[in-house]
Every structure is written in C-alpha cells, then in structure tokens.
Design a protein around this nucleic acid. Structure first.
Length: 384
RNA sequence: GGAGAGUUGGCUGAGCGGUCAAAAGCAGCAGACUGUAAAUCUGCCGGGCCACGCCCUACGAAGGUUCGAAUCCUCCACUCUCCA
C-alpha cells in the first residue's frame, strides 16, 4: 500500500466513479473539484473564507468545504521562493490550510508564458514575468520544489503543446514529456504523491501511446493534460473521451484545467475523478456568476433593485446573507467585497455541483442528475 | 445695476468652417473568460433601411453669412462666475 496516497472506488455508475483519496492532509471525496490557489491563495478569499465555502444544510457533514486546492510551482518559486516556504514549514502551514494541496509542476506555464521561455531536453529556461530574471525548471527542479513546498500531490513536469501544432511537433513534444515523466518519477524522494500527465494533443493514437506510457510507469495518479488550451469544445471532449478509458482504473484520474459545470458532468461521465479550473474564481472576479437557474452577469441593470438572493437554491454565505441588488452595487463600485462574495458563491456552487454528482453516482442516477441540472441551468429562470 | 463665461448625444465633457452622427470617460446592451502574468478583455451604443452603403433627425431656440456651420454673425431664452 502506497502511504503517500491511497485511492479506492466506493461506487460506479457507468464509467463514472465515486471514490475516496486519502492523503496526508485528509480524505478527498471524488469526483472532486479543486479550486485554484496559484499563489497559495484562492484569489480574493482568506483561508477561513475558503474553508467556509460549500456549506450546505442539505448535506450536513462535519466539514463541507473544499478538500483540496491547487498551488503553482512556477509562481511560488518566484514569490516567495521555495527556500522561504520550506523554512516556514511548507505551504499548508504558510497559508494555514490543513487540507490537501496539489501543485502544478509549472508545465502549464511553459505553455502560457511561451514568449519568455526556452525549452530544451534538460528543462526550461524562464524569464520571470515579474522582473525578467532567469529561472530554470526541469523535472528534477520542479519535483524538488514541489516536495519542499510540502504538497500532498505533485505533478510531473510536462510540456503542454499549443493547440494547432503539427502532428510531428505534438509527437515530439509528447515524447519529451514521457522522458520528463520518468525523470520526474526518479526525482521523487519525499512524501508527496506524484501524478503523471498524458499528452498527445488531439490525436487519438498519440493519446493512446501517452496513456499507456504514463499509466504504466508507477505514478500515484494520472492526469490528462494539454486540454483547455484554446481548442474547440468538441476537440476537448474528443480527447477526454478517447483518453479516459485508457487510464489505469485503480488510480485517481485527473482532467487538468477543466472546466465549465457541463464539462465536469461530462468528465465524470467519462470516468474522471479530479478537476481544477480557474473558471469559478476568475469569473467571480469578473462578475459572472453560476447559479442553479442559469448564469448571472451581476453588473446588469436588471439586478439593480433585485432583492432576491443570487441563487435561491444555494446556501452559501453570499446567498444566505445578501441580495442581488447589493452584489451588483458592490461590483459596480469596485468594492473588494464584491470579489469576496462572488468567489465564495462560485466556489460553493462548484462544490455543490460535485456533491450532487457524487450522490448521484452512489445512487446510480448520474444521467438523470445531469439532465436535471442542465435543464435547470438552461431554463433562464434566474431572471424570472 | 456693471463685467465676463457658458448652453454638445442618458450623464460628465472634447470639438471651434469641410476628414462630425460628433473624442474620451461613465452609464446601458451583448459576449468572452477552462493545469491564473486577468478585480480582465471584446463588440455595440441617435433613428430607419432591400444595412460594409444610403436616408432621416441632431450639437438651447429662431434667423443669417457660406459651395459647406456644432464651429462665424444677429437676436431670443436659460445657466454660471466676479464686481457692486
């Protein structure tokens, strides 16, 4: 038994799995959505506020908040730096978060900060986006940093090819990611669990090769990477549906960077267990709110005098305590509280969705849950 | 009572003879955001149309000068500032 992380499946519904991941920092009920906290902070929320997300009288468990969040290697190595984080006892203690943390390896930044990096077999040379200083990330340095930050789940250092590259380029990139995967695994010496990342662009045969390689070399979990990088939705779903069945069944399967509520439903249906996305938090800051009855663009004048709660079916702090009219006012005036209220709600909404998904798998009704959820969201009832 | 300044599209406010249906910001409308360089970005925003072009109505009101006026002149109305 792997003491870094254990996974077991509690129930299934078609390809969907209801499971449990035990980490050094608590147990994670899957399928799970992991809020993104790039810089050891889920943007706009204090750690206490984050813990209070997901409060739901419908499911009065002891703790109903997020069970795992993301951090980012590249961003944290620049600020505050891994030496400092290690000295201060790791990210958990640093941000006073006692639940699980998964760190991205910096692989995605290889992609998103493409203009200021240089990729070689050995690793990637970055210019800091903050001050232009030179930094180096490789499988070895990335894993080392992640372990020293003390995360529960580290990610292999990969290259995430841009959408639109040629088959040959994607294949070449994938092969390097495979070599980097083995190096990442070899570099893992500490207590962090380590997940591998499947690449291969939108090509089924490459995805298959990648899934076989990454799934067979001893990672604690396997992720599908290289999606949500600007490709059309159908491509993303195609990759997901082709790849998911090829992943190990006895390990957590993680779809990186996804997605919308509907994407999560689809991902779970395809047999995936873990998801992360900036969407709930970023959209919250931009005034785009998810509700059970459809999207709310809170800046719209139609909410100026709307005294109803944002989502009548949500029991988060925001929906319990303030009106749409107030949320609109805060947003329009640029008040910081707008982002706090909005983020608490969107994160809570995602957690609620996942909770509903988990219950539906356990009761073999994922499809019905999905249909009901989507028809409500598309009903346009929010403004009724 | 005297001297001066002003009146521009929902608001604030540029423009000071043609390139003006009129800058910019705000408000409004629509949309985007998917391993976070994002409290961000994009489009529309007088009306009408057989719309990448045409027509109508527009820069306080009415006249006038000019090939041509939001821009110049006259007069009227209103607003504001300063001096009494």
């Amino acid at each position: 038994m792997n003491k870094r992380l254990t996974f077991r499946i509690l129930a299934t519904d078609g390809a969907a799995r209801r499971g449990e991941i035990v980490t050094r920092h608590g147990t994670i009920q899957t399928p799970v959505f992991m809020p993104v906290g790039t810089l050891a902070s889920v943007k706009s929320l204090t750690t206490e506020q984050l813990k209070q997300c997901g409060v739901s009288p419908a499911y009065p468990d002891a703790y109903d908040g997020p069970e795992i969040i993301l951090n980012n290697t590249y961003h944290l190595m620049l600020r505050p730096g891994v030496d400092l984080l290690e000295k201060l006892g790791g990210v958990h203690r640093f941000m006073n978060w006692d639940r699980a943390v998964l760190s991205d390896s910096g692989g995605f930044q290889v992609f998103s900060l493409a203009s200021i990096r240089k990729v070689r077999e050995e690793g990637v040379e970055f210019r800091s986006h903050i001050d232009g200083s030179a930094h180096f990330l490789s499988p070895e340095t990335s894993i080392d940093i992640q372990q020293r930050m003390g995360v529960d789940i580290a990610m292999a250092f990969d290259e995430c090819p841009a959408y639109g590259l040629s088959y040959a380029e994607v294949e070449k990139s994938m092969e390097m990611t495979h070599r980097w995967a083995r190096r990442s695994l070899a570099a893992r010496t500490g207590e962090s669990a380590l997940f591998g990342i499947v690449q291969g662009g939108i090509h089924p045969d490459l995805r298959k090769r990648s899934a076989e390689e990454i799934g067979s070399i001893g990672f604690d979990g396997v992720a599908i990477g290289g999606v949500s990088v600007g490709e059309p939705k159908e491509e993303m779903l195609g990759v997901m549906n082709v790849t998911a069945p090829l992943l190990p069944t006895d390990k957590p399967r993680y779809l990186m960077g996804v997605g919308t509520p509907e994407d999560l439903l689809d991902g779970v249906g395809a047999g995936l267990d873990m998801f992360d996305c900036v969407m709930p938090t970023r959209n919250a800051r931009n005034g785009s709110l998810f509700t059970s009855l459809g999207k709310v663009a809170i800046k719209s004048a139609r909410y100026a005098t709307d005294q109803r709660p944002l989502d009548p079916n949500c029991s988060c702090m925001t929906c319990r305590t303030v009106s749409r009219a107030y949320l609109r006012h805060l947003y329009m005036t640029g008040e910081i509280a707008a982002m706090v209220y909005n983020t608490i709600h969107n994160v809570s909404f995602y957690l609620d969705l996942m909770r509903g998904i988990r219950h539906s798998i356990a009761s073999n009704s994922l499809q019905a849950f999905r249909d009901a959820f989507l028809s409500r969201v598309e009903s346009g009832e929010v403004d009724a």
